[in-house]
Every structure is written in structure tokens, then in C-alpha cells.
Amino acid sequence: MNLYQSLGYLVLGSRLRRLSESFLSEINRAYQNAGIDFDASWFPVFYLLSKNDSLSIKELSEQTEVSHPAASQLITNLKKRKLVTSVTSADDGRRQQVQLTDSGRQLLQQILPMWDAVLSAMTELVTEDEACKELLPAISALENAFKSVNLSERINNKLSSKIKSAANE
């Protein structure tokens, strides 16, 4: 058992970040090996724009569950690469609608088979180990638990209880 495994929930965030970084690195390597200039971090925006003609930055932010500034920064990066553009909304002049450019649509056609291959490879990988089959349901359950419980408050309550117990001893 390595250090991270032995520390359990104390390093949950670090383990999830390491797992995410490893996964995204492998996905980026697969794009690179296929000769596709695409970064896995762009996936949520490309996926949503593949399903919608255009979306506002606010809609992208809400659907990807990232902050508005983070979504805006990603869109700015994609604009610099000429993969997306934004136009002023017809019904609200303050809102910018983001859409794929011709280059973005061409890139989308290149990456669609990769998405199928990623899904297939991950499904195969997960079915090889019984414990892995529970990964996505467990992550969903934990996400829901974090939404319904104030973890920092619970931690502070535990700490207060320990301090009170120690003071009474």
C-alpha cells in the first residue's frame, strides 16, 4: 500500500487530482498519436457545441459546472486558436453566443471517432475489474453528498466535539 492509499480520505482530493491528470495525459497522448491538435480540457465545450448551434458563456459555465471566469478563459483560448467565435445575441445585446468556426467544425469531425474510441477503451478497462465498475456511481454519489452536506461544517463540529471531550478529561 502506498502513502496515498494508506492516508484514505485525508488525501482524497490529491488522489482524484492525480487520477484526473493521469487520465487527461493519456487522452492527450492519444490525440497526439492520432495527429489531432486537440486538448482534452476542451472536451466539455466541444461536446456541448456539437449538440447545440450556439451557447452563451453563462450556459457553458452552468452546464459544465465551472465558474463563469473559467469558462470565459477557455473560450478566449479557443478563440485565439480560431476554433470558436462569439456573436452578440439577437435577443440580448449583452450576451455573447459562442459557436464553432469552420475550423472548429472540421476539428470536431476529426475528434468524434476519438470520443467513441475513448468510451470503448474505458468501458473495456473498467469491465476488467469488478471494483472499477462502481467508479462512476461512487463519484456521482460523492458529488451528491457534497451538494447536500456542508463538509466543512461537519469537520468543524467533529473538531469542536474532540476539543470539548479533551477539555472534560
Rank of each mutant, 00 (worst) to 15 (best):
G104M: 02
A145V: 03
D39V: 12
Q109E: 12
I139W: 07
D116H: 09
S86G: 13
P113T: 11
S67M: 04
N156A: 12
R29T: 10
V45Q: 00
S89P: 00
A141N: 10
L60G: 02
L136I: 15
K164V: 10
S41W: 04
S6E: 15
S152N: 11
V84N: 03
S120P: 01
N52S: 05
N168Y: 03
S56I: 01
N156D: 08
Q96I: 01
G35C: 15
A90S: 06
A71E: 00
I111L: 03
V84H: 05
T101P: 08
Q63A: 07
M114A: 12
N150T: 09
A141W: 07
S56Q: 00
S86F: 06
L78C: 13
V11I: 11
N150K: 04
K58Q: 04
T127N: 11
K158E: 14
S72Y: 04
A167V: 05
Y47P: 01
Y47F: 12
P69K: 01
E124T: 15
Y31T: 13
L78M: 13
L100H: 05
A34I: 13
F38C: 04
A145N: 02
S50R: 02
V149S: 02
G35S: 14
V126Y: 08
T101L: 10
Q106H: 11
S25P: 00
V66C: 06
D37Q: 15
S20M: 15
F146R: 04
Q97W: 10
F146H: 02
H68R: 05
Y4H: 13
L119D: 09
V66G: 02
R81V: 02
A167N: 06
Q99V: 10
G35Y: 15
G8I: 14
V45C: 03
E169A: 07
G93K: 11
S54L: 00
S54D: 02
A30S: 11
T123P: 00
S25Q: 12
E130G: 05
L100T: 07
K164T: 09
K133P: 00
L10M: 11
F146T: 07
R94E: 13
D102N: 13
Q73Y: 03
K164R: 09
I27M: 12
I111R: 01
L55T: 01
N33G: 08
R105Y: 06
S14E: 14
